[in-house]
Structure formats: structure tokens, C-alpha cells
């Protein structure tokens, strides 16, 4: 009886796992097929001989290489800027002595509740006026601004736990604020910074609506917008579409394999992003 009970529990959990994972397995399979196989054979069959050329084709002919490169540098630049500004602000809010610190923190935290779509039209007009429409700088700036609140929130807990003695010792040694922050505090916060890097990476890599709205040239588009256009053009070539989608999800999956615990930490904290 007890065994049956546990068997049913495992069966239930396994079915959930199949529901969660099989669509991706299916994607991998059709990314390695050509159209005769996709439309002629069972959609569940393994590819007869894997068509790796699908990947090669979309990377060069389909512009996916360019989109991929844009996604990488925009993601990295935004992460670097976000974490620098968020760390500085968190340092001043939690470690330095001034009266309005709670108020400023509250102000930044309000940013967590804002629906980005409500800010989209004025942002578009703003960038239009300073000629930053169709310029990737507009993307880096918006990514940074919209990820600052969540990043500060994740950093906050860690900064509060740093012992005062560290700063006291640094000041005794004659450190300036800048030197203390960059050579003592920042290196100490590496563990929590890595969590924020991962969370920022997932947000930036997957972001769609800002790029779709502000960027019109192919040469600046990122993967999310790029694959959407690509699919529109190659509507019937399922193998190519599958390969494109795989290319866009592989970096995130690889990051997950290596840093799953960091990702879980970050997502639990990011739960509050709402």
C-alpha cells in the first residue's frame, strides 16, 4: 500500500517533468530535420540523419550571428553598468550616514511594481528627441534603469550583514571612500554580485518589447526580436526555425547547467520583482 502510494507520487512528478521538458526535446528534434522529414514522417521520430547544416545556414544566411553578437554585448554592457550603479547606491544607502537613506531606498523599490508598458510611449518619444531611437545605447540605458531596483534589492541583504569593523579598519589605514568601496567592499560582495549577474543576464537576454520598439535596423537587433523577424520570413522552413530557437535558448541552458543554484537564489529573490 505504502509502495503503491509512493509509486503514484513519483508517476505524478514524472508526468509533470515530461510536460515541462518534452516540448524542448521536440524542438531539438525538428531543428535537426529537413522539410521532407518534418512534413512526411511522424513528428515524434528522431531525425534520420541530423541536419546540422540547419544551424550553419541560419547563423550566416539568416543574420542570426549578428543578432547573437548584439544580444551578447548589450547584455554584458547593461549588466556591468547595472551592477556598478546598484552597488554604489546600495553602499551609500546601507553603509553611509545620512538622513534620507530609507526614503531613497523606498523610491528605488517603487520601480519594482511598474508595468514597463505604461512607460513605453514616453520612453520612445524621449529617445526620438535625443536621436537615440535605433541606437543600441537606448537599450542599454533602459535595461540598466529597469534592472536597478531588483539588483539593489538582491544586494541589500548582503550589504546589511557586512561587519562595521571592515570599514573602521579601512578608514584607520587612511582609505578614502572610493578606495574602500572599490578595493575592499566590492570584492567582498562577489558572491551576491554573481547572483545579480545571473538574474540580469536572464532578463536582458530574453527582453523583447524595448528592442522591438526602439530598434528598427537589422544590424542592431537582438536575438529575441531577430528570431521573430526571421520566423516571419522563413515561415515554412521548420528546420531553420528550430535551429534559430535552439541557438537563442542554448546560452541560457548552458548557464543553468553550471549555475543552477545561483539562478535559483536569484529567482527566489527576484520573485519580488512582480
Amino acid at each position: 500500500m505504502r509502495k503503491l502510494y509512493y509509486f503514484l507520487l513519483y508517476l505524478f512528478l514524472a508526468l509533470v517533468a515530461i510536460f515541462q521538458i518534452y516540448p524542448l526535446v521536440w524542438l531539438l528534434k525538428f531543428s535537426l530535420k529537413d522539410n521532407t522529414e518534418i512534413f512526411g514522417k511522424s513528428p515524434f521520430a528522431l531525425p534520420e540523419s541530423p541536419k546540422w547544416e540547419n544551424y550553419l545556414k541560419v547563423w550566416t544566411d539568416g543574420n542570426i550571428g549578428v543578432y547573437f553578437f548584439n544580444s551578447v554585448w548589450i547584455t554584458v554592457a547593461s549588466i556591468a553598468l547595472t551592477i556598478l550603479l546598484a552597488s554604489m547606491a546600495t553602499f551609500a544607502i546601507t553603509r553611509m550616514k545620512w538622513r534620507l537613506n530609507k526614503f531613497v531606498l523606498g523610491l528605488i523599490m517603487v520601480g519594482l511594481m511598474i508595468p514597463v508598458h505604461s512607460a513605453l510611449i514616453p520612453l520612445f518619444k524621449m529617445f526620438l528627441e535625443v536621436s537615440l531611437v535605433d541606437n543600441p545605447i537606448s537599450i542599454v540605458l533602459t535595461y540598466t534603469a529597469y534592472n536597478l531596483p531588483i539588483t539593489v534589492m538582491i544586494l541589500l541583504g548582503f550589504y546589511y550583514t557586512l561587519p562595521r569593523e571592515i570599514e573602521e579598519a579601512a578608514i584607520m589605514d587612511g582609505c578614502s571612500i572610493n578606495r574602500m568601496f572599490f578595493t575592499v567592499i566590492l570584492p567582498l560582495t562577489t558572491p551576491v554580485i554573481s547572483t545579480t549577474v545571473i538574474i540580469n543576464m536572464i532578463f536582458n537576454w530574453n527582453e523583447f518589447v524595448f528592442v522591438n520598439t526602439f530598434i528598427s535596423s537589422d544590424k542592431y537587433k537582438t536575438l529575441t526580436v531577430g528570431i521573430n523577424n526571421f520566423v516571419g520570413q522563413y515561415m515554412t522552413d521548420w528546420g531553420a526555425i528550430g535551429a534559430t530557437l535552439m541557438i537563442s535558448v542554448i546560452p541560457i541552458l548552458v548557464a543553468f547547467i553550471f549555475f543552477s543554484n545561483k539562478i535559483i537564489d536569484g529567482i527566489s529573490a527576484g520573485a519580488l520583482k512582480g
Binding site: 550603479l85 546598484a86 554604489m88 547606491a89 553602499f91 551609500a92 544607502i93 553611509m96 531613497v104 523610491l107 528605488i108 517603487v110 520601480g111 511598474i114 505604461s118 512607460a119 513605453l120 510611449i121 514616453p122 520612453l123 518619444k125 524621449m126 540605458l141 533602459t142 540598466t144 534603469a145 529597469y146 536597478l148 531596483p149 539593489v152 571612500i177 568601496f181
Partner: peptide, 19 residues
């Protein structure tokens, strides 16, 4: 230390909402 982050959030999050 505080202003860069605060200005970013103000310009790109709060001002657009009012607008």
C-alpha cells in the same frame, strides 16, 4: 554614490509614467 542610480530610475521609470 546614490545619484547615478537615482537619476537613471527617475528619468527612465518615473518621468515616463507621469508623461
Amino acid at each position: 554614490y546614490v545619484l547615478p542610480a537615482l537619476i537613471m530610475v527617475s528619468i527612465f521609470v518615473f518621468v515616463p509614467l507621469v508623461l
